[in-house]
Computed example of a mutant assay.
Amino acid sequence: MPRYAISFDLDRKALTTDGYTDSQINNDIYGKEVKTALKKCGFTQHPEGSVYHTEKLNEEDSLAPIVMLQQELQRNAPTFCKYVKSIHLFKMEGWSDILTLIQNQQLPGLIIPRKAEDAGDIAA
């Protein structure tokens, strides 16, 4: 079952130049306009910042979020459409939270070499 994700960046400098406050950008544009439009397209999961993804979709519904995306954003997120400076849509194979690895915390049953010389013969 496929899942899709979307990531984007808004041009905050242009928004500020055009008179938008940080509060308006964060609460009105990111918090309401974008979130509402993406939710209508099935992008209901918001794991962080400017990243949203769909739940696992049935095969017959797999393209529905993508087909709806352009119309929904243009109709219900005009500020987003005007100030978006990059936007990427991709198919997700999986989603892994690797925070514990990045923070050098030990996961049960996983041995992570700390130094290159400790790595030994790890196959690439």
Score class of each variant (00 low, 15 high):
residue 54 T to K: 01
residue 95 W to T: 08
residue 83 Y to W: 14
residue 112 I to K: 14
residue 54 T to H: 02
residue 47 P to S: 06
residue 10 L to E: 02
residue 31 G to M: 03
residue 61 D to N: 14
residue 68 M to F: 08
residue 4 Y to W: 13
residue 116 A to H: 08
residue 96 S to G: 07
residue 88 H to M: 12
residue 37 A to W: 00
residue 112 I to E: 11
residue 109 G to P: 08
residue 123 A to E: 15
residue 40 K to V: 01
residue 37 A to K: 00
residue 96 S to N: 14
residue 22 D to L: 05
residue 14 A to T: 04
residue 97 D to N: 15
residue 37 A to N: 01
residue 86 S to G: 09
residue 67 V to R: 09
residue 61 D to F: 13
residue 26 N to H: 06
residue 14 A to P: 04
residue 28 D to T: 07
residue 67 V to G: 02
residue 77 A to D: 05
residue 83 Y to V: 09
residue 25 I to D: 01
residue 25 I to H: 03
residue 18 D to R: 12
residue 21 T to H: 04
residue 34 V to E: 06
residue 27 N to S: 13
residue 110 L to S: 08
residue 31 G to F: 01
residue 89 L to E: 00
residue 19 G to E: 04
residue 29 I to V: 13
residue 43 F to S: 00
residue 18 D to L: 07
residue 88 H to L: 11
residue 18 D to A: 14
residue 101 L to M: 06
residue 99 L to A: 05
residue 78 P to R: 13
residue 69 L to D: 02
residue 77 A to I: 05
residue 22 D to W: 01
residue 90 F to I: 00
residue 23 S to G: 05
residue 81 C to K: 07
residue 60 E to F: 05
residue 1 M to L: 15
residue 100 T to S: 12
residue 85 K to S: 03
residue 8 F to H: 03
residue 11 D to T: 04
residue 11 D to K: 11
residue 31 G to I: 08
residue 7 S to V: 14
